[in-house]
Design a protein around this nucleic acid. Structure first.
Lengths: 191, 191
DNA sequence: TACCTAATTAGCTATATTTGTAAATAGCCT
DNA sequence: AGGCTATTTACAAATATAGCTAATTAGGTA
């Protein structure tokens, strides 16, 4: 994400992160309004509303149309749509910094898994997470696994199944309660 | 959109509308970090970062995992996507304040139209727009009406057809050129 | 236990934001 | 032109936010 994109996104959040401006956006999304109408509806003075509208116009969130001595403000849906699409998309946010995670994960897995067995349990956090993610994928969602079964499954990959099991829980790939384990969607990180 | 949704959206914008918090979001989207790492990267003190993270946690934008004496923060992508999907659409924003507009329009029409005639031409903008919308619906799209015909049609509703005609044009329910009128889709307003 | 490190909480200050009043501007009407 | 209205601009007051240092809490370790 470029500096420009960052600034644009920040400006957008700043503008919308104000109660009255968000209300104005709502009112304008419904239908166009003049400054004094908005002032009435929001119980604010005209200059205040005018100021808010100027900020919203700055980022192209609203449009103005003069009508005699009034100014009719309308919501620029396109702007919101573009923002939504371009800046808030999964890709953009992810691309923020991610550098081909799949490739790197593949490389790590190839390094540590030979003939279906873990050659060693990596120490580096990133490597460990990749391995744990792979192991967690051996489990299905919505299935309850007794500890014994978990151990058996993990022993396939490494003698020290207890460490693997503990790490899987510690890093929230598995949840545990009363000796029963189940897979959960690990959030954040190298998902 | 409920008050709850409004508050949620507002809180989200408020949190993301700060330069350092937005940077933190970017850094955490890349990979998880501890408080002091972030403080280093952003050139801020730990308490400041801690405070920012607390705000982000409040709206479930980040997750924490204790690791010894550190706390490892990670980005909760799900939260962002949910926000993006559920709350940022135009419909949602519009619904922000809409209180059954159809009902209200019906109420206004019933107030001002008796036995097929306008009892008076309302002054309030909202009421006026509702009446004008109703009147505009007497005209068909893609039909060219000479002024004389427009006057006749409007006279059915009120003696002061000239005012109605002018308002219909002023508020862009009708377009006029060289004495010929035609109905257009009014944009923005009470469509 | 005592000590160390990391993080959070508390309390304070500087800055930014929001809002209001008063004055200036712009369009319309007589 | 002069008056009227809606809006914007200028500027000041009040409030909110962001940042700091210092103190406290929590976990790890000798």
């Amino acid at each position: 994400m470029s500096q420009e994109d960052f600034d644009k996104l920040l400006a957008f959040f700043k503008v919308m992160g104000n109660e009255n401006r968000l209300k104005i956006a709502g009112l304008l999304a419904e239908r166009e309004h003049t400054v004094s109408e908005l002032a009435d509806l929001l119980d604010l003075r005209e200059p205040t509303v005018s100021e808010h509208l100027a900020m919203m116009k700055e980022i192209d969130l609203v449009r103005v149309r003069p009508e005699g001595t009034r100014r009719v403000y309308s919501f620029n849906a396109k702007s919101l749509y573009a923002m939504n699409k371009d800046l808030l998309s999964r890709d953009k946010l992810a691309a923020l910094v991610r550098s081909k995670p799949e490739d790197e994960e593949q490389r790590i897995l190839q390094t540590y898994i030979r003939e279906g067995r873990l050659t060693q349990i990596p120490v580096g956090r990133k490597k460990l997470l990749t391995i744990l993610k792979f192991l967690s994928e051996q489990f299905e969602f919505d299935v309850r696994y007794p500890e014994k079964r978990v151990n058996e499954m993990l022993k396939q990959f490494h003698e020290d199944y207890a460490t693997l099991r503990r790490e899987l829980v510690d890093f929230h790939y598995l949840e545990r309660e009363k000796g029963i384990y189940w897979r959960v969607e690990r959030e954040g990180g190298l998902e």
